[in-house]
Amino acid sequence: MDIQSAFASGTQGLQSASYGITEATVNINRETANQQRLQNAREDAAAQQSRAETDRVTLSSEAQTPGLTQSLVQLTTEQINAEANVRSIQTADEVLGSVIDIRV
């Protein structure tokens, strides 16, 4: 059985949280851009009385990215994960420092 050190686990968790933060940020950006395109399409459709185009844009934007709320929740969750992993790295560093002080 291979047991990772607290420092390695914290570093791995921090990298994972960083990836999750990046993913959530990209999804938020996409959703915001999709909502802007949808709003523009709705305005164009109202001017041209073209309901079919608005429906097509709505369906394509909803199918491409997770919802804005879901992405914001993911971003907050990943932030908490990152903070927890930073604390575990700090604790591992302090414990290692204490062990070195005791043995010297």
Score class of each variant (00 low, 15 high):
1 M>C: 02
1 M>H: 03
5 S>W: 05
5 S>A: 13
9 S>T: 13
10 G>S: 03
12 Q>E: 11
14 L>D: 01
15 Q>D: 08
16 S>P: 00
16 S>N: 14
17 A>N: 00
17 A>P: 00
17 A>K: 01
17 A>H: 01
18 S>W: 00
20 G>Q: 04
20 G>S: 11
20 G>L: 01
21 I>C: 01
22 T>K: 11
23 E>V: 10
23 E>M: 14
23 E>T: 15
24 A>K: 03
24 A>H: 03
25 T>N: 12
26 V>K: 13
27 N>E: 07
28 I>V: 12
29 N>F: 05
30 R>T: 05
32 T>P: 00
32 T>V: 15
32 T>I: 14
34 N>P: 01
34 N>V: 03
35 Q>C: 08
36 Q>M: 06
36 Q>I: 07
37 R>W: 08
37 R>I: 12
37 R>H: 11
39 Q>D: 10
40 N>D: 14
40 N>H: 10
41 A>S: 10
41 A>V: 11
42 R>Q: 12
42 R>W: 07
43 E>R: 12
43 E>A: 14
43 E>I: 14
44 D>S: 11
44 D>V: 08
44 D>L: 13
45 A>R: 05
47 A>I: 03
47 A>K: 04
49 Q>D: 14
50 S>V: 05
50 S>M: 07
51 R>M: 10
52 A>L: 13
52 A>R: 13
52 A>H: 04
52 A>F: 14
53 E>L: 15
54 T>Q: 14
56 R>N: 12
56 R>S: 15
57 V>Q: 12
57 V>E: 11
58 T>C: 06
58 T>D: 13
58 T>Q: 15
58 T>A: 15
59 L>Y: 08
59 L>K: 14
60 S>W: 05
61 S>R: 13
61 S>V: 15
62 E>T: 10
62 E>F: 08
62 E>W: 05
63 A>S: 10
64 Q>P: 01
64 Q>V: 08
65 T>N: 11
66 P>H: 05
66 P>D: 09
66 P>R: 11
66 P>E: 09
71 S>C: 02
72 L>V: 01
72 L>P: 00
73 V>E: 06
73 V>G: 00
74 Q>M: 06
75 L>P: 00
76 T>G: 10
77 T>C: 01
77 T>E: 13
77 T>K: 07
78 E>A: 04
78 E>F: 03
78 E>Q: 11
79 Q>H: 06
80 I>K: 05
82 A>L: 01
87 R>Y: 03
87 R>F: 04
87 R>Q: 12
87 R>A: 14
87 R>E: 10
88 S>C: 00
90 Q>M: 09
90 Q>I: 08
90 Q>K: 11
92 A>H: 02
92 A>K: 04
93 D>E: 11
93 D>F: 13
93 D>W: 11
94 E>N: 07
94 E>T: 09
94 E>M: 11
96 L>P: 00
97 G>I: 07
97 G>M: 09
98 S>I: 14
99 V>F: 12
99 V>A: 10
100 I>W: 06
101 D>I: 05
101 D>Q: 09
101 D>Y: 05
102 I>A: 13
103 R>C: 07
